[in-house]
Design a protein around this nucleic acid. Structure first.
Lengths: 159, 159
DNA sequence: GAGAAATGCCTGCGTAGCGCAACTATTAAT
DNA sequence: ATTAATAGTTGCGCTACGCAGGCATTTCTC
């Protein structure tokens, strides 16, 4: 077995642990903030978008149905983290904007977590960081393709 | 701003997308298998352990309460994916073993997904793969520390 | 070695997120 | 002008989850 094969053999279980850790981490952050994991995921995604986002887009981003997305926005609005606003251009649509308070509450938690995270990366060279950045971007794209394929195969079951 | 700072500045939002993608991916796999995300997460963790695991250990691994872990094992057992067995050494304990059928069902899905994943890594050098392996191991450890800290801070709220 | 404390798992109950389907309001198509 | 499509909301049923209490078993303490 080549060195490369040995590395790949190790990477497979480790990446599964890695995935599991992320799920648990997301849950821990949610518990810490007294929120549901879905709400944390949603706010995370919202702050990555530029500008307000429609409820339908939130349903896409989170993978929820439109009804559940409405309830999700209800919860976030009730918690004072986002604000609803009718779109004047298309009065069917509702724009959801993240409020500064949400950024504060998230920022507070992520400052300390981000500091630890940055400390880990401090050990790495610029070339390694550049590789990591490229790898993450590729993996995000791969995830999207795989999610689409999984969903596509599901719908093929019921023609 | 140095090149290094620029890389770090890019890595932060990308890693957040990365995290979000993983959550969605987990959900997609669960939907595809007709299971709940928690159940998928549990089976993923179980297959990473060597040998049968107690219900209490499952509660630890998944972050659930003991009651919820019992229900989780109930579902997996009912689905024919795991088997319960009393521990003869300590008859309070229940050992949960993953059945071959679970490995088959998971293997089927993960073979194709793993192939795409391996294809992405094929572009990388051995040194890059070695770095990735090391990075993932460090990140898993970091997650554990951060999860413990988040949980610890929570418990400090109510002394 | 007997009673107390701790451990491991299970069960009843209330809460709440989610999908589904039906409904309203607005815009686009014919 | 009528019909169809789109965006969002709401009622309903299901089920995972936490919590608290309970039972069986083991370990501690005297």
């Amino acid at each position: 077995m080549t060195t490369r094969d040995a590395l790949m053999a190790q990477l497979w279980p480790v990446s599964r642990r890695y995935l599991a850790s992320y799920v648990l981490f997301n849950q821990a952050v949610a518990d810490h903030l007294g929120m549901h994991p879905t709400d944390v995921q949603c706010l995370n995604l919202l702050t990555l978008e530029d500008g307000p986002v429609t409820t339908g887009r939130i349903a896409e981003l989170t993978g929820l149905t439109s009804g559940s997305a409405t309830r999700l926005v209800d919860r976030l609005e009730k918690a004072g983290l986002v604000a609803r606003q009718r779109d004047d251009a298309d009065r069917r649509r509702v724009l959801v904007a993240v409020l500064p308070e949400a950024l504060e509450r998230f920022g507070e938690v992520w400052r300390s977590l981000g500091a630890d995270w940055a400390a880990v990366l401090d050990e790495d060279s610029e070339a390694e960081l550049a590789f990591l950045l490229r790898h993450m971007n590729r993996t995000v794209e791969l995830s999207h393709r795989q999610i689409a394929r999984l969903a596509g195969e599901d719908s093929q079951r019921l023609p």
